[in-house]
Nucleic acid binder design. Structure first.
Lengths: 134, 134
DNA sequence: CGGTATCCCTGCAGATACTG
DNA sequence: CAGTATCTGCAGGGATACCG
């Protein structure tokens, strides 16, 4: 078997390119990693601190997935204790545009979604009443 | 306890609006449901057939999540057997823009990602070799 | 320093039977 | 017709100890 990992999920996901991409950027830490690496190069430990909250294992998995998709470049410097640098590729830079558009939309309409949720939850709280529940 | 469901995940997700949105559109069937409802109104069973592959329970959950976020409007017609219609809200229509941009990017750069994966997987297959592995 | 190996736990998703 | 109830499975994520 492959010596890498048993948890390889992304094998036959290419049914729809959109779903495929969403599986990537939808995974919990991917976007934060991309943001952390926007315009700069970081080493593993720096990344670990920059993303903050992510566990080692998961961070590694996230980085590997991004690297595998050609969005991330991993450079190993054979120094005394090994040094590894991570940087986004031009491909990832191109993704930045659509991603930012989505982020902007999210921020702009955040209030709408929050209030919609409130309304929905409130409606769910009163099954079949029109007057004051209390 | 709330009579709706025990599996309410989306309670305190508002740390980051982007993550929040990605949790929504990142869930497996959301985008397909949005696509299915683009510009038209469908009933539950129609939706079930349009999305194809989704199970009842999951479809309902997807619809509820979208409705809760104000992206979907659910209309119940008190006919003999009850009739329910689903339609996107203007809010969802606005989301269509950024989402399409992302989809376009995904389609455009699909080949890049696929070849990147091939290269990555090929490299992983030969741990420390330069010649022919066979 | 930059990972891997190992273990656990939760939640999403799938399938299906049942119901107002 | 449009769901809910129930059970199951499994991948994603988390924590941490260990290693070259």
């Amino acid at each position: 078997m492959s010596p890498r990992d048993t948890e390889v999920t992304d094998q036959v996901t290419d049914v729809c390119p959109v779903r495929d991409l969403l599986d990537r950027i939808g995974s919990k830490w991917t976007v934060q990693v991309i943001e952390a690496l926007a315009g700069r190069t970081l080493r593993f430990t720096e990344l670990e601190r920059a993303v903050d909250g992510v566990s080692r294992r998961v961070l590694v998995r996230t980085l590997r997935a991004l690297e595998r998709d050609g969005l991330l470049r991993r450079t190993v410097h054979p120094t005394v204790p090994v040094t590894v640098e991570y940087a986004l590729t031009p491909l990832a830079a191109g993704l930045g545009g659509p991603l930012t558009a989505l982020a902007d939309w999210a921020r702009t309409h955040r209030a709408d979604m929050v209030s919609a949720r409130r309304a929905y939850d409130a409606a769910a709280a009163r099954p079949a009443l029109s007057g004051d529940p209390a």
